[in-house]
């Protein structure tokens, strides 16, 4: 191979035009995607940044803002909504861990145990995606009904003294985290599955042969080899969960004491019409997630996995 590569040296010049043509073709094919990104991502992002610096002129109506360079928007939202930000990340983190704890065994079962039975494997995957056939708003409202104080679950738990008589689940952190985890489990399970499905079981046999018990095999072989799935699964769960405003909303599983950043942004945009605050909060959420995610990906040492 290397010898033939060298022998082509002199003719390398003749190859160049073809390479140029090829790279032009690449740009041509990329064009629709780039235009789309420019129109629907870069432009709104710039508009968002501009909005985040706007200020209300003296005597303005509600929702009337002019261009300015008002840094205070950021400090104001941070002091006003710092607690909500921390809560968002805690909720999203807890929901991600729960989704991982449920999604990993599920993906392992489908990807490894069902491997000899392709039909069952496909069926199980369809079942994982099946909830998507119903709007997640409906499903979340359904959970609100199920977990309601008058509902069967809470009633039974109270009857068995698992819950004190005055307790309730809806409107608490628990129900919000539960809702987030529930809604994002498919996003966790699918990338995990695609990773676990490719796991070479002969390596696990080699581990057994080399004196590794089941726990060690899992920790030292299975987990490192399925790390790409774990990382994309947790990212696909954590990022949207941190910005979610449905589960935590008082209309669904939350209450005023469970407000997350998403709810804050929603309220500022739609109710308070404080656009600069909403925009700066959005940008803070975006950068915080970006920093967290980069740190996580970097820490997992996945440069050769991703």
């Amino acid at each position: 191979m290397s010898l033939t590569a060298f022998s082509h040296g002199p003719s390398g010049v003749a190859v160049e035009p073809a390479a140029q043509k090829k790279s032009r073709m690449v740009w041509f094919l990329l064009l629709p995607g780039l235009v789309y990104l420019g129109l629907f991502f870069i432009t709104p992002l710039i508009s968002l940044v501009i909005t985040a610096f706007k200020e209300a002129p003296p005597g303005a109506f509600i929702g009337e803002y002019v261009n300015a360079f008002r840094w205070e928007n950021y400090t104001e939202v941070l002091s006003l909504y710092g607690e909500h930000s921390v809560r968002s990340f805690l909720y999203a983190g807890a929901a991600t861990l729960i989704a991982l704890a449920i999604g990993y065994p599920l993906a392992y079962f489908i990807g490894v145990r069902l491997r000899p039975y392709p039909l069952w494997q496909s069926l199980a995957l369809v079942l994982v995606i099946a909830p998507f056939f119903i709007s997640f708003l409906l499903r979340t409202v359904a959970w609100k009904q199920l977990l309601a104080d008058e509902g069967f679950i809470v009633g039974t738990m109270k009857a068995w003294s698992i819950l004190p008589p005055d307790a309730h689940i809806t409107g608490t952190s628990i129900s919000v985290i539960f809702g987030l985890a529930y809604n994002f489990i498919p996003f966790m399970t699918l990338p995990l599955y695609s990773s676990i499905e490719r796991l070479d079981l002969r390596l696990l046999e080699a581990g057994k042969d080399l004196y590794a018990g089941p726990v060690t095999s899992f920790r030292k072989i299975t987990v490192p080899l399925t790390m790409p799935g774990i990382i994309s699964g947790t990212l696909l769960t954590f990022i949207p969960a941190a910005g979610d405003y449905v589960n935590a909303s008082a209309n669904f599983l939350g209450s005023t004491s469970t407000t997350m950043i998403g709810n804050v942004i929603e309220a500022n945009f739609l109710v308070l019409q404080n656009y600069p605050h909403a925009a700066s909060m959005s940008l803070i959420l975006m950068s915080a997630i970006l920093i967290l995610v980069s740190a996580y990906v970097f820490k997992s040492g996945t440069d050769d996995l991703l």
Binding site: D200, R202, L203, A206, G207, D209, L210, I221, P224
Partner: peptide
């Protein structure tokens, strides 16, 4: 007992 596997089964990571 240790085995040298047909596929070698070396840990790629």
């Amino acid at each position: 007992i240790n085995t040298v596997f047909q596929s070698y089964a070396l840990f790629p990571h």
